[in-house]
Design a protein around this nucleic acid. Structure first.
Lengths: 195, 195
DNA sequence: TGCTCCATGTAACACGTTACATGATTGC
DNA sequence: GCAATCATGTAACGTGTTACATGGAGCA
């Protein structure tokens, strides 16, 4: 389970309420990893029960139920323990690849519009990441360790978006191509071949 | 839900048993998307109940329970319907990014060995993909549409692995760097900033 | 008054993972 | 005979998603 550890990390950076955490998460780790508020409240409840975090009524709570969560020493110890574990690289589990294979099997399904929509989405995200990069990681400044790491995480996102755009554009060109060789000798040998 | 549609696509390419499907899946879509045999049997059961697929005892079953699944017209119609739907680009949900943020928050956690392990894993995968590319998509041959699409899906994987290696190597250099600027003016302004 | 946002929660379900179980076939 | 592989399944649990519910605060 990694969500709880992502939340621990986020709370270490800044104690906050579940609601704030959900919004903050969306703007940091959540650029890559979305979590709903339900997931977050559920994890906060479990972590509090486990003694990893504690909550207290927020100073600005008024009559609301607003609570501030903070990391306790056992929570920090758990995060240290977990960080040393190996983990598998993520899957490239993209539904669009399945749609493409369906297109290959059934004949043209006109996936070009969806591909164009995705290119636009990737470009928007890329623009956002570059804006953040310019704002928070201006070139030339000798950065401290933590900031350099945050910068590298952002760069991972930038690389991914750039790549996705380049690939999608090549794919789009291919889908728009008219003249196909129908000689069966040039087909792949087996259905399982080729990714 | 996309797994059922991935299985439909795979069965369209070739009717097969649940077991064969699981193995074939691992070697095609499953390079990017792993599914356990339990998931696959569960989905096959649902799809048969829904009338998307039908099964019959395999010709080579002998005394085993081996069954061959094939796609029925309603299954193909469902795949066509689904393929036209828009879908969100996948998350970059990588646990290692969380570990890096934990490292940034807590001080050096010695993540270099894990990073080196990951580089090796990415290199292995890249070598495998390139082998498949050479075997099934030899350069210069005018390919048919379906093969070109399969090639592009494979290329997506190749690009991703190349990228991951390049990024991880830069990250590794950064983690091994000794001299850090500790001037707090160079820290990022807010915890939520920077990916 | 009604609208939006803040803040927290329950319920139900779909999807994914792990462990365990069963029996036939193939090869040494 | 024994082990590995083929082939299919159940059970339990953890994670992720969607829908719905509740009530306070700020604003027009």
């Amino acid at each position: 389970m990694a969500l709880s550890h992502a939340l621990l990390t986020s709370l270490l950076e800044k104690s906050s309420s579940g609601y704030d955490l959900a919004r903050r998460f969306d703007k940091s780790i959540g650029f890559f990893w979305h979590a709903t508020h339900q997931q977050i409240y559920r994890e906060l409840g479990r972590m509090e029960a486990a003694g990893w975090i504690a909550s207290s009524s927020a100073p600005d709570a008024g009559k609301t139920r607003k609570r501030i969560y903070r990391v306790l020493p056992p929570g920090q110890a758990e995060l240290l323990r977990w960080a040393a574990e190996p983990s598998a690289p993520m899957d490239l589990r993209d539904e669009f690849m399945v749609r493409l294979r369906a297109d290959a099997a059934l004949g043209s399904l006109d996936l070009a519009p969806e591909l164009e929509r995705r290119i636009a989405l990737h470009q928007d995200k890329l623009a956002l990441y570059r804006e953040i990069e310019q704002r928070d990681f201006a070139a030339g400044t000798g950065m401290v360790r933590a900031a350099s790491i945050h910068h590298m995480i952002l760069k991972k996102g930038i690389l991914y978006e750039e790549n996705s755009i380049a690939w999608a554009q090549e794919m789009l060109d291919l889908l728009k191509k008219k003249s196909w060789n129908t000689n069966p000798r040039h087909q792949t040998p087996e259905p399982e071949a080729g990714a």
